[in-house]
């Protein structure tokens, strides 16, 4: 059951002199099982976009279909939608409110009407999936480190057992290792649990290594929607949108211009090193 956005527009302050077109005719099909990256400059509409996917914002015009049903229908059960499409906001640790981690993770499944036993089982499973340290399950939220809080918050959404998991800047404010750990964890969720992942980021480098499809948002429109290699080949256009292409790709591009036989579509520094090494040794 794919998620379909059909000619979705969102206009804020429509009745004032300064209407803001946050989304402008967005058409997307998100089939199950994909790992998608959504990138865009601040204000490009990416946050607005993802909130349409689980009915937190309804389109001004156009439709969002989930499971073949229009989510704007009056009798459509939004709670049911939110169970299937989990959304983890930016700095999700700011939403923690219960006395201990475990209780907080239980909040979602409890709201979904699961029985006590199901709820606790789901919470355990979710905490395990985000590799939250076991000895801290019943710790107070205030005793946790930044990275641990974030894991707990992600578990809180995961415990509802969503089929789609949307994460808005899950690595914001973390240090490099913390960033890698979270991204690896998300990638593992996709691989082992088969959850469809939509990763929102303004950092190309985060996204490049993991995703199979990149959606680039610019001024409320979908600027590109393709595999990472293809998207990053539009480096000049991306830079105009305020997005920097990953540094490895920037370097190989520069070398290509200077006559080296390197691959301009590399995504990681190891790939870049390999490609440059090949070019250098071939010339010899």
């Amino acid at each position: 059951m794919p998620l379909i956005l059909d000619h979705v527009c969102q206009i804020y302050n429509a009745d004032t002199e300064t209407p803001v077109k946050a989304l402008d005719d967005v058409n997307l099909v998100i089939p199950e099982g994909q790992f998608i990256g959504v990138i865009g400059h601040t204000g490009s509409g990416k946050s607005t976009l993802i909130q349409h996917m689980n009915g937190l914002i309804l389109p001004t015009s156009g439709s969002v279909y989930f499971n073949g049903r229009d989510i704007t229908d009056k009798d459509f059960d939004k709670k049911e939608l939110r169970k299937h499409v989990g959304l983890v906001f930016q700095y999700p640790e700011h939403q923690l409110f219960e006395t201990d981690v475990f209780e907080d993770v239980c909040f979602g499944p409890k709201n979904m009407g699961m029985s006590k036993k199901e709820t606790e089982l789901a919470a355990f499973e979710a905490l395990r999936k985000v590799s939250f340290p076991e000895d801290l399950y019943y710790a107070s939220v205030f005793e946790l480190s930044g990275g641990q809080k974030r894991r707990a918050a992600i578990a809180g959404v995961l415990a509802m057992k969503p089929d789609f998991l949307i994460l808005d800047e899950p690595t914001a404010g973390l240090d490099p290792v913390g960033r890698c750990e979270i991204l690896d964890m998300v990638s593992e969720l996709h691989r082992s649990a088969g959850i469809t992942i939509i990763l929102v980021s303004h950092s190309m480098e985060d996204v490049a290594m993991y995703v199979e499809r990149v959606i680039v948002m610019d001024k409320g429109r979908v600027a590109y929607d393709d595999v990472p290699r293809e998207v990053f080949s539009h480096s000049e256009e991306l830079e105009q949108m305020g997005l920097a292409i990953p540094e490895p790709a920037k370097i190989t591009r520069e070398l290509l211009k200077r006559g080296f036989d390197v691959d301009p579509g590399v995504l990681t520094s190891s790939e870049a090193a390999d490609s440059i090494y090949k070019a250098l040794t071939k010339n010899r």
């Binding site: 480098e205 520094s269 870049a272 090193a273 440059i276 090494y277 250098l280």
Partner: peptide, 15 residues
């Protein structure tokens, strides 16, 4: 030390 090295430095090091 859990620190990330700048991209160019990393590539140079790998090369």
């Amino acid at each position: 030390l859990r620190l990330d090295v700048p991209g160019p430095t990393r590539i140079a090091w790998e090369l």
